[in-house]
Design a binder for these strands. Sequence first.
DNA 1: GGCGTGACTTATA
DNA 2: ATATAAGCCACGC
Length: 103
Amino acid sequence: MNTFEKIYEVVKMIPCGRVASYGQVAAYAGNPRRSRVVGYALHVNPDPDAIPCYRVVTKDGGLSEAFAFGGENVQRELLLRDGVEFTQDGRVDMEKYRWRPNF
DNA sequence: GGCGTGACTTATA
DNA sequence: ATATAAGCCACGC
């Protein structure tokens, strides 16, 4: 399986109400240094219907500055719709909403 | 195949 | 705290 497909698989396996960081996805894709490829993979986003790129955030739980699949505002709505709350800093509470496959 | 770029992360100064 | 370097992989030229 190519790195891209692995990334897609990982992103698709993110449950509702949870968010994962690029590094996390990259780590589960095989190597945490693939975070860049994760960004590119979501950038091309061949299947946005199965690949909720809005559930992928930076390590700080914040959205990428270049995030523009529809608008940062849209992302906030989608995450809120999934039950994810935002902190006053406009970031996701990674301690509570970070994707935890082991948990 | 090389080079530059990019939705990132980590390490070092 | 910011700045810089390196690492990884895919795409376009």
